[in-house]
Design a protein around this nucleic acid. Structure first.
Lengths: 259, 259
DNA sequence: CGCGAGATTGAGTTCTCTCAACTTCTGTGG
DNA sequence: CCACAGAAGTTGAGAGAACTCAATCTCGCG
């Protein structure tokens, strides 16, 4: 058995009330909800518990809102998990930048750089954000020596693969713009749920322009369709705060059973 | 060192001339190009070479054009690599079906089912197709016992993660429909290249309707934009055969340096 | 040779984009 | 704490792109 007591961070975490909050102390994601927990948790070998995290994990590195975490094309030496906050992922296309995805609390960032030398996109903080950073090299070294860690890493990467596939399917599979936006919201809800947050009520930390950019729509269209969805009682939106009256109805509209 | 000579399939493979061919003996992908080769290759332990493929791999299972390989929601016990042919992946959305991706020779299918019990989409043969099938359970068993296999599996899954991310970025990141289609073609070219086929000249095994469905456009729009791209000399298209006069120009148009 | 699926073309409609004006929000400095 | 400036959000009107519908053409297969 893994000795959870030897893992101090779990006890630090405060209970989360809601993702909706203006300015407060950051509410760190519980380590046992974080998708890196299999890697950060101590390993049991021959009856003894070993914790490798000290060797490779830099906990809760702070990034100010708007700050770049890493830049496309730069050498990638770290992988990241979001402890609090959120990011947008950006790719250079045709001399301009496009939002290609978002990452919220508890999610991993740039796992695909594990077998690549450089970052294939950039990442920028959407709000004040804390990241746990893991050194790729060290992780790979330890993984190659300790099968248990290798197995866990495998689990993490597989999970990530499923998540990305899932998200891509959801967003790609819808024709109408209204359904695309609904799918985007449903996807976010699902991810907040997976990170231990309320999924029927959360804060859109990105701007409408970011959402538009991500979905390949204009910001005006995004705004108008938000309004339309609200008129159809599928969502309730006030500024950056979003409420989903009925997940079931939203799922019916999008056409996918997710939650 | 791995003893390649103990791996008979490599020598069977015929040299590939071109993906463009009407009716001929299927030209199997060389195993050393297949993305499952790290798993199929024999493993060296204590100076001896062990080949586990016999225990878990069913080689070149034939599927007729139009046949379903597996169905969304069904229990997933196998993962697949395409030895010859191509597939479309389909998801049920709102009582109808939508094409969510394609897979060509040398590519893997449904790797994300590794950590899931059921298929999250369906797969259908776009032409007469041969698949190598690997039993998930057996693979996981062997991987958990032999670190070398685990490591290789890790490599395969990571690679797949990168590929999916790459494809998603390419297709998602473009606004205009014309650029979307160009990106789709460029993505296919890149994938044919990775599978050892000519990338400037290949056959579109899927219908225009499939492409339209996949890109979220109408089939008429796809046809008209194909024509437009041809008028701009970015592609040359005759029925199902496609030629890319200049990969550089196409990349410039899409705005991504891929090849 | 003929059937049927797929591909193509044209015309009219609908949706989304663009542009511009304006309001609201946010953060900064006085 | 307020004032201000810049960013983000909202709204309306006109232009352009993509969709739908229908008719026709072509190719592969029996």
């Amino acid at each position: 058995m893994l000795s959870k007591s030897s893992h101090p961070i779990n006890s630090v975490t405060v209970s989360k009330s809601s993702a909706i909050s203006k300015k407060a102390q950051p509410e760190y994601v519980a380590c046992d909800v974080c998708r890196l927990s299999p890697i950060c948790s101590p390993v049991n070998i021959g009856g003894h518990s070993y914790d490798f995290t000290g060797k490779m994990v830099n906990r809760r590195h702070y990034f100010k809102k708007g700050e770049r975490v890493f830049q496309q094309g730069q050498p990638a030496t770290l992988i990241y998990a979001i402890s609090a906050g959120s990011l947008k992922l950006i790719a250079d296309v045709k001399a301009s930048e496009r939002v290609i995805d978002f990452r919220i609390s508890g999610e991993l960032v740039d796992i695909c750089s594990l077998n690549e030398g450089v970052h294939s996109y950039s990442a920028q903080a959407l709000e004040d954000t804390y990241l746990c950073e893991i050194a790729k090299d060290t992780l790979n070294d330890i993984a190659s020596q300790i099968p248990q860690v290798q197995g866990r890493l495998m689990k993490v990467v597989s999970q990530e693969l499923s998540n990305i596939q899932q998200s891509a399917m959801l967003l790609h599979g819808n024709v109408g713009s209204e359904e695309k936006i609904a799918a985007f919201i449903l996807n976010l809800a699902w991810r907040y749920l997976n990170s231990g947050y309320p999924c029927r009520e959360f804060r859109l930390t990105m701007t409408r322009t970011d959402i538009a950019d991500f979905l390949g729509l204009s910001k005006e269209t995004v705004i108008r369709l938000f309004k339309k969805l609200q008129q159809n009682s599928l969502i309730k939106i006030e500024g950056k705060n979003l409420i989903i009256p009925s997940i079931e109805e939203l799922q019916k509209f999008v056409g996918i059973e997710l939650i």
